[in-house]
Structure formats: C-alpha cells, structure tokens
C-alpha cells in the first residue's frame, strides 16, 4: 500500500517524536520498578507537604496538583506504553482531545459557579 505508507511518513514528519509508533522491548521489569518507586515517592512527598504544612497554604493546591500530573505522566509513559500500536499513535490524539474537554469542563464549571454566587 504505497498510499498508506506515504501518509504514515507525512504524519511522522508532521507530528514529531510523539507520533512515532514504537513497541516496548524491555529485557527486564525495570520500567515498572522505576515507575512504582517514583509513584510511591511522589505520593509520599505530596502527603508530607500537606501534613507538615511545609508550603504556604496558598500555593499548596497547585504544588500537589502538579505532583499528581507528574504521577499520571509516569503511569502513562512507563506502565501504559502510550506510544504502542501499528501506524500513527492516534490514541495520543484522542487523549489530548479528551484532556482539553476535561480541563474545559472543570475550569469553566468552577468559573461560572463562582460568578453566579457573586451576583445572586
């Protein structure tokens, strides 16, 4: 299928590294062990930050949310083999779209409800 191959090459140059398909051929369970250790470490860090009041309460939600996003990235990259598949990794496109919709729902719900309580 020369046409399909051309499309694939086009996407590769267009989408950059993220759209390159690749299978995990690991000789040992090291990605899993590293991912597990990092998850435990990040969970522990977030918990200690909250319990021992190590950061001003104003910045604390943003910091622990950032740690959660890091941990989600570790799960996606090291455990879920996000890029695996034959052909372009359309799952990344789907997930990015879902993420944009999700962020919109959360941010605008909070915004509109805060605004409403301000005027009523």
């Amino acid at each position: 299928m020369p046409h399909a191959r051309k499309t694939e090459r086009g996407l590769l140059s267009l989408g950059g590294l993220l759209l390159l398909p690749r299978f995990e051929h690991s000789s040992g369970p090291w990605p899993q062990i590293v991912g597990y250790a990092l998850s435990l470490l990040l969970t522990l860090a977030a918990t200690l930050l909250v319990v021992h009041h190590l950061i001003a309460p104003l910045y604390l939600p943003a910091v622990i949310l950032f740690l959660a996003v890091l941990q989600a990235g570790i799960q996606l990259g090291l455990f879920m083999h996000l890029r695996e598949g034959v052909g372009p990794s359309w799952q990344i496109v789907a997930l990015v779209l879902a993420g944009i919709v999700a962020l919109g729902i959360v941010i605008f719900s909070i915004w509109i409800m805060a605004f409403k309580s301000g005027v009523s």
Binding site: Q91, A94, L95, A98, V101, A102, V106, I110
Partner: peptide, 26 residues
C-alpha cells in the same frame, strides 16, 4: 490493533466522565 485503539478512545470518554464529577465536587 483496532480493538486496543478503540479501548483508548473509551478511556478518553471516561476521562470526560470523571472530569464532570471532579467539576461537581469542586
């Protein structure tokens, strides 16, 4: 292959479901 890709799309819809519940909670 297609079934696995389809499952990723389902997970995307589940992301949206949970985002609604997170918005309600917030």
């Amino acid at each position: 292959n297609l079934a696995i890709l389809g499952f990723w799309f389902f997970l995307g819809s589940d992301v949206v479901l949970f985002s609604c519940l997170f918005a309600v909670y917030a």
